[in-house]
C-alpha cells in the first residue's frame, strides 16, 4: 500500500516536472510582442476616458439619487385619516338596502312545512314525559 502511494507520488512529481518543462518550452516559442507606442497611447486614453466617465456618473448619479430619496421622504403618502361624512352616509345606505333585501317574506310555496319551533317543542314534551317516568 505504502509502495503504491510512493509510486503515485513519484508519478505526480514526474507529471509536475513534465508539465513545468512543457510550459517553459511553450512559453519560449514565441514570446509575446511588447505593446507598441500606439497601444500604450490608446490604452492610456481609454483608461482616462473610463476614469472621466466614471467620475461623471458618480457626480451625476449620486446627487440624483440623494435628491430622489429626499423628495420621496417629503412627498411620502400620508396614512389614511378619518373617513369623510359622505363615506358614513353611503355605508349606512348600503346596509339598509341589504337589510331590506334579506327581510323580504318568502312566498307560501317556499315556506317550510315545520318550523324550527315546532320540532323543538315536540322534543321538549317527549323529554318531560321521560323525566316524569323516572321520578315515579
Amino acid at each position: 500500500m505504502k509502495h503504491a502511494g510512493q509510486q503515485l507520488d513519484n508519478n505526480v512529481e514526474r507529471a509536475i516536472e513534465l508539465f513545468r518543462g512543457a510550459i517553459h518550452h511553450a512559453a519560449a516559442h514565441p514570446l509575446p510582442q511588447a505593446p507598441s507606442a500606439k497601444q500604450l497611447q490608446e490604452y492610456s486614453s481609454r483608461k482616462r476616458r473610463r476614469h472621466v466617465s466614471r467620475m461623471v456618473m458618480t457626480w451625476t448619479l449620486g446627487p440624483a439619487l440623494a435628491a430622489m430619496l429626499v423628495i420621496g421622504m417629503v412627498v411620502r403618502p400620508r396614512p389614511a385619516s378619518q373617513p369623510a361624512a359622505s363615506t358614513y352616509a353611503s355605508d349606512s345606505a348600503l346596509l339598509e338596502q341589504v337589510n331590506e333585501d334579506l327581510s323580504q317574506t318568502a312566498p307560501d310555496s317556499l315556506q317550510p312545512l315545520y318550523g324550527p319551533s315546532d320540532g323543538s317543542a315536540t322534543s321538549t314534551t317527549h323529554e318531560n314525559a321521560t323525566n316524569q317516568k323516572v321520578t315515579r
Partner: peptide
Amino acid sequence: NAANFDEVFRLYSPRVFRFLLG
C-alpha cells in the same frame, strides 16, 4: 519612459507570460 519600456518588457515579460500561460 517609452524608450525603456521595450527593455523592461524584454527583461520581465517571459516570467509573467510563463506564469499566465501555466
